[in-house]
Simulated assay, not measured.
Amino acid sequence: MAAAVARSGLRRMFAISDVAATSSRLFSISAFTPPSPPTPPPKADPSPNLFVSGLSKRTTTDGLREAFAKFGEVMHARVVTDRVTGFSKGFGFVRYASVEDASKGIEGMDGKFLDGWVIFAEYARPRPPPQMGEGTSQPQQSWGPPSGSWGAQ
């Protein structure tokens, strides 16, 4: 008898008709509006600085400089690397001597292969100013224990 009651209780608990009736009362499809798609950030103004993404883990700063030097005078090139592994994080920056050279660099390297990966080059956007947190007059230090923590007595 107890087994029969348990089976009927499970059937009742997992019955689709009960869930459908309950969910139709709780949610209305007509009231659902999908979120608006995110707007892409605006294109950066032309400048001699380029942002390069899609880099391989094997790409080095010298390799990035050599690839972009074919299109103009490269003043500075840098592949951003992971502090622990030393491998590329997949992006970097190239600075040309002029905006004209930078536009040639974009035309020549955007969508091309470098170290077996397709890379993308675009004008770099300026870094936004740092945001200060509410009520903090000094920036937080990123090393050591936080002030007033377990070490203070």
Rank of each mutant, 00 (worst) to 15 (best):
M1R: 13
A2L: 08
A4G: 06
V5A: 04
A6L: 12
R7K: 06
S8T: 12
G9V: 04
R12V: 00
M13K: 13
M13W: 05
F14V: 07
A15D: 14
A15I: 03
I16A: 08
S17V: 05
D18K: 05
D18C: 05
A20C: 05
A21I: 13
T22Y: 13
S23P: 00
S23W: 09
S24L: 03
R25M: 08
R25N: 05
F27R: 02
S28E: 03
I29H: 07
I29L: 11
F32I: 02
F32E: 08
P34A: 13
P34F: 14
P35L: 07
P35G: 12
P35T: 09
S36E: 15
P37V: 09
P38F: 15
P38A: 13
P38L: 15
T39R: 15
P40V: 10
P40E: 12
P41N: 08
P42K: 14
K43D: 00
K43M: 00
P46V: 02
S47A: 03
N49G: 01
L50T: 02
V52K: 00
S53W: 07
G54C: 06
G54N: 09
G54V: 03
S56G: 07
S56K: 02
R58L: 06
T61F: 08
R65T: 10
F68H: 11
F68S: 04
A69E: 02
A69I: 06
K70T: 14
K70P: 09
K70Y: 10
K70Q: 14
F71W: 08
F71D: 00
G72L: 04
E73G: 04
E73V: 09
A77N: 04
A77V: 03
A77Q: 05
R78N: 10
R78Q: 12
V79Q: 13
V80A: 02
V84A: 03
F87I: 01
S88V: 10
K89C: 03
G90Q: 05
F93K: 00
F93Q: 00
R95P: 01
Y96R: 02
A97S: 03
A97R: 02
S98Y: 01
S98Q: 01
S98L: 00
D101R: 01
D101E: 02
S103R: 07
S103V: 05
K104I: 01
G108C: 05
G108R: 08
M109K: 07
G111L: 11
K112A: 08
K112Y: 11
K112H: 11
F113I: 06
F113M: 09
D115K: 09
V118Q: 10
A121R: 10
A121V: 13
E122V: 06
Y123N: 01
A124W: 07
P126M: 12
R127Q: 14
R127A: 09
R127S: 09
P128I: 06
P129T: 07
P130G: 12
M132K: 14
G135N: 11
G135Y: 12
G135V: 11
G135T: 12
T136P: 07
P139W: 15
Q140D: 13
Q140R: 14
Q141H: 11
Q141G: 06
S142D: 14
W143I: 15
W143D: 12
W143T: 15
S149A: 11
W150C: 11
W150A: 13
A152H: 13
A152C: 08
